[in-house]
Design a protein around this nucleic acid. Structure first.
Lengths: 225, 225
DNA sequence: TGTACATCAGTGAACGCGCGTTCACTGATGTAC
DNA sequence: TGTACATCAGTGAACGCGCGTTCACTGATGTAC
């Protein structure tokens, strides 16, 4: 309710004091277009928003977005880029430089992956389900790399605790962890009607998966032998 | 080249003998519509085909499909259902009842997952990226269940080899394996420009993942203990 | 084997709609003096 | 502090297009007799 009013306020750039549009110039249009597009993507998927509908939601003329985005694809790519930036922030906060304890921080990164997929379905869809070519823009590639780098740093930190002869390649381990978190998020952790039901939470499923995988890498060796 | 001609032959239902349409009645229209839709999905994604474009590809009037499919969504759901049927066949063939050796057969199921995602990108997209609600139709649910049942059967067979106290829940193991195969296929094993490049093949990545995971479950205990 | 008839798959014209994009324009804003 | 002016964000009307869907129809096919 309150959130919905806030959204309209943001879209229309109405000030709470005057209650009216700032005037002929929106003042914050590109931001408002992105927010409106996110709402539509959350409801109808990456293919379910149109430039025209976004302008209607924001309350500007259909030609207005062209001052800010070359076309519909450019808007989508910008949303994906913003998504990876937020994603990297979320993973980074969960990792917390491996403090206070690396293994717990590592698990927390996995949980953050699922939380992001559930709480930001629109960003998640733009990032992974919009079929954007991976080389769409330099900005998008950099944001993607930044997010992956956090996952990789976490893996490298954990690997350093293994005896020297038993260390797996950090790249391989990073990709494995990415794939397991992504697979669980995509299949069982989404926030829409395409989510497949399972007799446990995605969080529990991922935690068990990570533990078994880490055991397989030798992290559990102290416990059984 | 030859394949392309064959495709046109199928679409238009031209006989190679007469070289002409069979006549007023197409004879095999619903099949031809599905094939044309698959081609468009492979090129442009699940959102990238229209009823109208499909009829043009097949060479019938825009009203023709309504004799066979209630609407565009019904066609998409039928394609997803066919996809899961083919998918179940592929997994089943790979599993081969666990013969001649269960572990090898199990790995082969994982490889079949990747092969299907790569060789049948249109089916894969319809099954997993079309945002169809999981309860779209009874037929779709049944086909999905049939595919999962094969994965589960493979897990159960492997689990039976573990000592009684160390057996993981088959459902959990099945979901883990599904998620890892699906994560790798979605991120690194697709056949389009949204594939993320990695310094190994998806097949190698999945094989290593499965081995580490199985080790973590205790399947490698004979080797280190 | 031939004819009459029922069935129903496919026709083609038509509809209203929302789309992306263009264009010359307008008017709010900020700044130089 | 006031005025003239440049900038440029947003306007609104217009365009051609492809879409999904409808409708009364047509004619190929199969079957009853």
């Amino acid at each position: 309710m309150g959130a919905s009013v806030d959204v309209i306020t943001v879209y229309m750039n109405k000030s709470k004091r005057t209650g009216g549009r700032r005037g002929y110039h929106h003042g914050n249009l590109s931001e408002a277009l992105v927010q409106a597009a996110l709402d539509l993507i959350a409801k109808f998927g990456p293919a379910g928003f149109s430039f025209a509908e976004v302008t209607r939601a924001v309350g500007v003329s259909p030609a207005a977005p062209y001052r800010h985005f070359r076309d519909r694809d450019a808007l989508m790519a910008d949303i994906a880029r913003r998504g990876f930036d937020k994603f990297a922030d979320a993973l980074s906060e969960a990792w917390n430089s491996g403090q206070p304890e690396a293994l717990a921080a590592f698990k927390s990164v996995g949980q953050a992956y699922l939380t992001f997929a559930r709480n930001e379905p629109a960003y998640f869809a733009a990032m992974f389900e919009a079929r954007l070519p991976t080389d769409t823009s330099r900005e998008l590639t950099q944001a993607t790399d930044r997010a992956f780098a956090i996952l990789r740093q976490a893996c490298e930190t954990l690997i350093a605790d293994l005896p020297e002869g038993k260390r797996p390649p950090a790249m391989m381990m990073s990709l494995h962890v990415w794939a397991m978190a992504h697979g669980i998020a995509s299949l069982f952790g989404r926030g829409d009607s395409a989510r497949r039901n399972i007799p446990m939470t995605p969080e529990q499923l991922l935690e068990a998966d990570m533990l078994i995988y880490l055991d397989g890498l030798g992290f559990g060796d102290n416990k059984d032998g």
